[in-house]
Design a protein around this nucleic acid. Sequence first.
DNA 1: ATGATAATGATAATAATTATCATTATGGGA
DNA 2: TCCCATAATGATAATTATTATCATTATCAT
Lengths: 146, 146
Amino acid sequence: MRNSKQKDIILRALDEHKIHPTADELYQYIHKEHAEIGVATVYRNLNKFAEKGIIRKIVGLDGSSHFDSCLEPHYHFICSCCGKIYDIPMNIGKDLIAKAEEFTDCKITSMDITFRGLCRKCEDEHNGNFVFDEKETEMLLTASMS
Amino acid sequence: MRNSKQKDIILRALDEHKIHPTADELYQYIHKEHAEIGVATVYRNLNKFAEKGIIRKIVGLDGSSHFDSCLEPHYHFICSCCGKIYDIPMNIGKDLIAKAEEFTDCKITSMDITFRGLCRKCEDEHNGNFVFDEKETEMLLTASMS
DNA sequence: ATGATAATGATAATAATTATCATTATGGGA
DNA sequence: TCCCATAATGATAATTATTATCATTATCAT
């Protein structure tokens, strides 16, 4: 993999974002400063980085791809209401993997744990009105603000 | 939610499939016997069932939505090579959730655990040639068969 | 410096899912 | 049992995110 100005900019932009942006969100951000960089380049490189293990790709509740520059072992909390992804810097023992292998003949090499619930903001905003759909939620939030 | 002939057929078709099909896969299957049922109806109802908690929606490695008629507590193994999803009927204690809540101020209500690795078939077929990309894999498999 | 080739960017293409809307089916009440 | 408000359906248009194409440019080993 060759170096490029674009790769540097994309990696730096991701590092500046602790909110696990999608490729498109990151593109929008980069575009402000570097309008010369195309969408394809952002998508292409983020996926390439993830493949090489330089960054992590995480899948949101709605199937959208988010990227995480932190490689340290940690897990995520996804708000069922707004879809935002937060870090949970917990280190979970490998014994779960060993235990899981008793239930299958597949070779397990890693595990993903995602916690779900309501983030503080959403809990406050419409106290406990549990919603799965992001769009529905957006409407709810907008409505409650007006 | 009203009953309908279509809802029955969709639920029954999902029950018959233990492989966690996508909405489209299920539509293709249903279409053979019931050409009168439209795609929109299948997508619509599967999502509605998942919202109501009648079935489960699980997100594949590539962000695709799969559906699972089994509500019993169990986890999944996704093959990094072929993308197939297998059940792991293990029951994991709720203490992980309590532990995770120490690292966040979010209210955690559930957790998703997905194990990854190579399924037997993929391990045998190209012994240990670890590939993330499904399409790349498809090519590999095709190539090794000819 | 040079050349093979990897990377880029504009844009076309794809694929999965959702919205629209006219038509049909459901089920509670008279 | 029939009525009817309205939920559900199905054909298809629209949307959205992502990927493929390809001519041009940049990188880096020699």
